[in-house]
């Protein structure tokens, strides 16, 4: 599987390369009638022959990488749109906003992830991982955010991967998101949840924010045990720091509403308590 594409080239190669090879021999023979060093002659032409193979291999790999990068960019952009859609949530339009977000997410899966899967077909997923890892992280972020807003639970990696199975043909190995990309996506999710929590508090939904707070804490706690075991965890370590900041931000926001919100809700009266809370939150931003 590793060199499937390369070996394919190898098998198709001799026919394509025989011509220049022969041509070279003729030219060589006419120049050096009794070639003093026949071996160097042969070396030169076999070298060219061999390098044609390598060139084909590199061309194919680079083209594929380019296509994967393009498909990944679409996945990233459209996953971001889903996340923004989720942030349009407010007290009264929850179902409506989430329904649209889920619709958009399904469209990302059907259109863009499927294209990524198609482009990756037959290649080692790890070889081109750098080309698509950010797209997959963003997609994980969007999918898990949608799921959390809908049910308050964490979308599992197994569930995401199960939903990706029908996208590719039976003949090829299906794209499965690896643990690392999933975890990196989760780390980004907490940033989005922080924004969501602040938005909810300013909208007066303190309990919702507290639920988010609990959820983010859970994720952070679980990740602290997993991160040291990750393959290349320098990126993840950075994300863990940001994540802790997010957790602290949510906690502080919840705290301020708890402590100070109780002080001035009665001051302002019940006419519009939400603005008072909003005012407190603004102090934090």
């Amino acid at each position: 599987m590793l060199y499937s594409s390369c070996r394919h080239l190898l098998s198709s190669f001799p026919m394509a390369a025989s011509k220049p090879h022969r041509l070279h021999q003729i030219v060589g023979a006419s120049l050096l009638s009794s070639s003093k060093k026949p071996r160097t002659m042969a070396t030169d032409s076999t070298m060219k022959q061999e390098f044609t193979k390598y060139a084909d291999y590199l061309n194919e790999l680079n083209d594929k990488r380019e296509r994967v990068v393009k498909a990944s960019r679409d996945v990233t952009i459209n996953s971001k749109k889903v996340i923004f859609q989720v942030h349009r949530i407010s007290k009264d339009n929850k179902e409506e906003v989430l329904a649209k977000a889920e619709n958009d997410l399904a469209a990302v899966t059907d259109q863009y992830i499927s294209r990524l899967v198609k482009e990756l077909q037959g290649t080692d997923f790890w070889k081109l991982r750098r080309a698509y890892t950010f797209a997959v992280q963003e997609y994980v972020e969007a999918a898990t955010l949608c799921r959390f807003c809908k049910t308050g639970t964490l979308l599992n990696l197994a569930e995401i991967n199960a939903s990706l199975l029908p996208l590719s043909d039976q003949s090829v190995e299906p794209l499965q998101i690896n643990v690392l990309d999933y975890l990196l996506g989760l780390a980004d999710l907490t940033g989005e949840l922080m924004r969501l929590a602040i938005g909810r508090i300013s909208d007066g939904e303190v309990e919702y924010a507290e639920k988010i707070c609990q959820f983010v804490r859970d994720i952070y706690r679980e990740l602290t045990l997993v991160v040291p075991r990750m393959d290349d965890n320098s990126e993840m370590k950075k994300k863990m720091e940001t994540m802790l900041q997010s957790v602290v931000k949510i906690e502080n926001a919840c705290f301020s509403v708890h402590v100070r919100g109780s002080e001035y809700n009665p001051l302002l009266g019940s006419s519009d308590p939400d603005y008072s809370i909003f005012g407190i939150i603004m102090q934090f931003l």
């Binding site: 300013s202 909208d203 919702y208 019940s270 939400d274 909003f278």
Partner: peptide, 13 residues
């Protein structure tokens, strides 16, 4: 956060 557009009682939420 965007300012809330309407201020409805928080009991429903």
């Amino acid at each position: 956060p965007t300012p809330p557009s309407s201020a409805s009682p928080s009991s429903s939420s």
